[in-house]
Each structure stands twice: as structure tokens, then as C-alpha cells.
Design a protein around this nucleic acid. Sequence first.
DNA 1: TTGAAAATCATACAAATGGCGTATTGTCGG
DNA 2: CCGACAATACGCCATTTGTATGATTTTCAA
Lengths: 211, 211
Amino acid sequence: MKTVITVAIVEDKEPIRQSLAILVDGAEGYSCQATFENAEAALDYLPTHAVDVVLMDIDLPGMNGIDCVRHLKALCPYTQFMMCTMYDEDETVFDALKAGANAYILKRSPPHKLLEAITELHEGGAPMSSTIARKIASSFYTSQAVSPELEALSSREREILDRLAKGHSHKEVANELFISPTTVRKHIFNIYGKLQVHSRVEAINKYLGRK
Amino acid sequence: MKTVITVAIVEDKEPIRQSLAILVDGAEGYSCQATFENAEAALDYLPTHAVDVVLMDIDLPGMNGIDCVRHLKALCPYTQFMMCTMYDEDETVFDALKAGANAYILKRSPPHKLLEAITELHEGGAPMSSTIARKIASSFYTSQAVSPELEALSSREREILDRLAKGHSHKEVANELFISPTTVRKHIFNIYGKLQVHSRVEAINKYLGRK
DNA sequence: TTGAAAATCATACAAATGGCGTATTGTCGG
DNA sequence: CCGACAATACGCCATTTGTATGATTTTCAA
């Protein structure tokens, strides 16, 4: 049996929307079921007319493509979402993935690549433009240089900082470790010195590596 | 000028190592500079004889491929590492990426795909077997259940909480938002009520989804 | 064993924070 | 128009926290 991959397109610019639709419909094995010029229309239609793959522009008038995916993902669990955008900015990429996007390609990709990507996506892959893929892979890399500052902490200091990070007060930590609250405060003071910060939240951010 | 991509191979099984080397050396534009049958030998040689791309098996006798990458990455910043393995287990994949691997492909990939991957890697991409790519993309997806409590926050409250999370004091936030410190404190008080917490760090933990 | 670093504790002070009550203004949906 | 709610703002109080000075004991490597 021949499997046809059903596709929907969300893109506000008329010419781009048209050419994408023609590209998809013209290729064997693909069928463009619907096109929308904004997120709201897609949210209205797709939950009751599920398709295999949605090509989603990010920069839309009104609700943006990322929020649109976030909503649709919950309503159409079997639909795959491919973000299609002009830009490859860091935050946008990660926000899209967090929202549930399964693929992220740049509009400047050649048409045949687009069709390949749709197939790959439908077969369980996660096609990404190469620069995007590199960004994502790199995001996991934490140069094992845990920042020399953290290395300077003694094990006791680390234990205390860890409990502070859980939201405990110095009194609570004192009780947990069976030491005086003053001692805990002294440790905290020393920790601040080593990490070169002046508040609890700053220390915790350094400890947990959030910048 | 023609650019030749220099490659090194770390793989303990003799026949596989040989066939990979022949594959790489036989193709135009690729040159296999060295092969190693264990991580230690690679760690010994590569820091002083950098190559463009290293194909790294994970399951090695002695030190495993992931730890090997971790060490080499610090010493050979311009070298790209491609993990080459039989398995696609979750933890292994993420550990490899955290260690600094730039690509992750399964050995069952066809030879021509391997060469393509080397090129893509060298050109700044991050080739992944499709199942791997999907795993990675999915790892970002946090079912939008942001905990109903966070939903209760107004946008102003969210903005303030976000700045607190960066380590700013209420006075600093007040200056940033051009409102009175008292107002900021009132907001913080309301935030605590909605999140059902009693301290700044607890609120931030809920906000950032750390449990 | 000797010296440095770490861990412990005390006291003190000022600033920041947590926990209220109250009030004004503006917006929005019924 | 009314009630609900968000945002703004002030004041008051008790506690926590950041900073500082000083001291004793443990630990561990040189």
C-alpha cells in the first residue's frame, strides 16, 4: 500500500505559503491538506483534522508559531511539528524544542531538502539544519572545567550550598547537620567569598551553573 | 586548493578498524591519519598530532570512548568527535554529548552515510542517526504542564520572579522596572502566596522547575 | 611535628527579607 | 455600573541574612 504523508502549512506570507503548498502537493507521496495564515486558524482546525506533519512558521502575526505548537502538541499527540524559519537564534530554537517541535529547519534550505526532511520527520527522525543541530549538540557540552571557583569550595561548604539550593534557611541547615546556626552562616560567608558573590541566589546560580 | 579532511579512528575490533580506515582512505578528500585500538593510545598521540575528525567507538577496553572524548576535547579544541556505536541508549547518548561529542551515529549506518557525516561534521553540522536526533530533540520537551501554580502568576509577577531568579535584590528589581521597592516586595509577597512557598529560593525553584 | 586550611562557635550591627494591613488607580467582563 | 483583580504604594514588625571580628579545635599534608 502506498502511504501518503499528510501535511498542513502555517505561514502568513501568501507567496511562501503558496509555493510550499505547491511543492508538497506536487511531490509524490505527499499531500497538503490545509494551509493557514495565522496560528489561531490552525488551532481552530487541526485538533479535529489531524495531519501527519505541520510546517510551522515562527514569525506570525498574533500568536507566534512556538506558542501555537505548544497548544497543538497537547491536542494532536501524533502530529509532528517542523519549525520553518528565517533565523537560527539560540533562544528561539530551544524554546521551540521545549514547546514540542520535532524538527527545525531554515527557510533557505533547498526545496528537495524540505521534502526529505518531511519524510525523515515522519519516519521518526528529527531533521535539523546543520547549524541548528550543532547548537543543540553543543548545549549539552559543559566544559568539565566546573569553573575553578566551584573547585575552591570544601566538601562541607558544598554540602551546605547544596542544601541552600534546595531552599533551606541557615537554621534548617544547622539542624540537618547538627551544627550551630552561626557556623552555617560563617560557612555561607566563606562560600560567598570564594564564589565572589554577595547573595544566596547568586551563589546558587553559580553552583548550579545557571548564568 | 583542495581540502583534505584528516581523520583518526579509535576502535578496538581489528576488522572494523581496518574497514573504517580503508573506507576513509579510499574516498577522495579524506585521509586517515592514525588508528588506535584503545583510548589510552589515542590520548597519547592526538594531543600532539591533531586531526580534523575522530571516529570514536564507545565500548572500548580500559577507558571508554566517552571519557576519552572528555579528555581529548580539552586538549584538541578544534577537533570534532563523532561517536560511533552499536547502541542508542539514552544515557550513553547524553553522556557523550555532555563530554563534548559533536556527532553520534550508529555503526549500522551505510558506508556512504558515514562519509557524508564526516563531511557534514567538518562543515559545522552535527550529524546524528535519526533515532538519536529524535531522542535529543524530545529531551527538551517538557509537557506544557507548567504546574497550575505558575499559571496563576500575572505577567508582572513573572517578570519580577524572573529577575529575582537572576540574583537581583528587590531594590535592584525596583530600579530596573522603575517602580517602588515597596511595590516589588508586595509583588513578591503575592507570588509566595500563589506558589505556596515562604522563601525566595523556594519560589525560584518552583519557577525554574527544579524539584 | 608543625603549619595551613578547614570546621566549629560567639557576638554584633545594618540591611534585606518575610509577613501582614491598608489604600488608590485602572482594567475587564458580566 | 459593579465586583474582581492587577498594579501601584506606604508603613510596621520580627526574622533572616550579609558582613565583620575574634577565637578554639580538627585535620591533614609537608
